[in-house]
Amino acid sequence: MDLLSWMAVGFIVIGFVVLAFITRNMENEVHQSSATQSIIWKIVGTAVWGIVSIFLIVYWLFPRFL
């Protein structure tokens, strides 16, 4: 495996771990009134992480299909 594939896999795995950690910590925060901003930032961060992950996978696989 080349460096780009290791970066893509590492980014995706680390993102899943961080997302699970944040979700577990947010379960305690949900009943507070200030949790709305945290939930919005979690959604934005997850969307950005997903877009970057898709871009990395496509960028890694694109030369292999040519």
Rank of each mutant, 00 (worst) to 15 (best):
W49Q: 08
D2K: 00
G45R: 05
L4N: 02
G50T: 02
Q32I: 02
I54R: 04
A35S: 15
H31M: 10
L66E: 12
V17M: 06
E29Q: 14
S33R: 12
L19Y: 09
A35P: 00
I12F: 06
F11I: 03
M1F: 06
P63E: 01
Q37D: 12
I14Y: 06
F11V: 06
V13A: 15
I51R: 01
V58C: 07
Q37R: 12
G15E: 08
V17I: 15
A35I: 09
V48H: 01
Q32R: 14
L3H: 05
S34D: 02
F11C: 04
I57F: 13
R64W: 07
I22S: 04
A47T: 15
A35R: 08
A35G: 05
Y59K: 13
R64I: 07
T46E: 02
S5L: 15
V9S: 05
T36L: 14
M7E: 01
V48F: 02
F21T: 08
S38T: 02
Q32N: 10
I14V: 13
L66V: 12
A20S: 05
K42C: 08
Q32T: 10
Y59V: 06
E27S: 10
F65H: 11
L4A: 01
E29F: 05
E27I: 04
I54V: 15
R64Y: 12
H31D: 13
E27F: 08
E27L: 11
G50Y: 00
F55D: 09
V58M: 14
S38E: 07
L19D: 05
F65A: 11
T36V: 13
T23Y: 07
Q32D: 08
V52Y: 01
L3D: 13
E27V: 03
